[in-house]
């Protein structure tokens, strides 16, 4: 019984630590306002290995994960399915746009990278 409870708690903690992607710009912005956070919009593609690396490895890094969860609402946009909101332009993927409460870009990170380096860039933008 103890083990079952332990497994259940672990499973819950894993689910809750997973970064949840929003897909609607306005909803993400509203959510960010309500929670006193900013929006981090990731423009990516399923065929881009750098994007998968960020989602599968970097976003699961404890420090990166908790920093993102604490400060940002994550909005996911796919280059093959979605258009970027007006006013946003990109030169390559993945691009991470950081959007303030008024909906304007306040900074960006172009390309991915190892967790420790990405965290430094995140902190610099925040």
């Amino acid at each position: 019984m103890k083990y079952l409870v332990l497994i259940f708690v672990l499973a819950i903690s894993l689910i809750s630590s997973e970064i949840k992607f929003e897909h609607n710009f306005d909803k993400a912005l509203q959510k960010a306002k309500n929670q006193h956070k900013e929006v981090m919009m990731m423009y990516s593609a399923v065929w881009c290995p750098e994007c998968s690396y960020m989602k599968e490895i970097v976003f699961k890094n404890k420090k990166v994960n908790s920093y993102i969860q604490k400060h940002f609402i994550v909005l996911g946009k796919d280059i093959d399915k979605d258009k970027l909101p007006s006013g946003f332009k990109y030169i390559g993927i993945p691009t991470f746009f950081f959007i303030d409460k008024s909906g304007k870009e306040k900074g960006r990170i172009i390309g991915g990278g190892k967790a420790d380096k990405f965290l430094v860039k995140l902190r610099a933008i925040k």
Binding site: P49, Y53, I57
Partner: peptide
Amino acid sequence: NSTFKDAILYK
């Protein structure tokens, strides 16, 4: 003879 220290070797 090559070095790959801290390289990203994902897939």
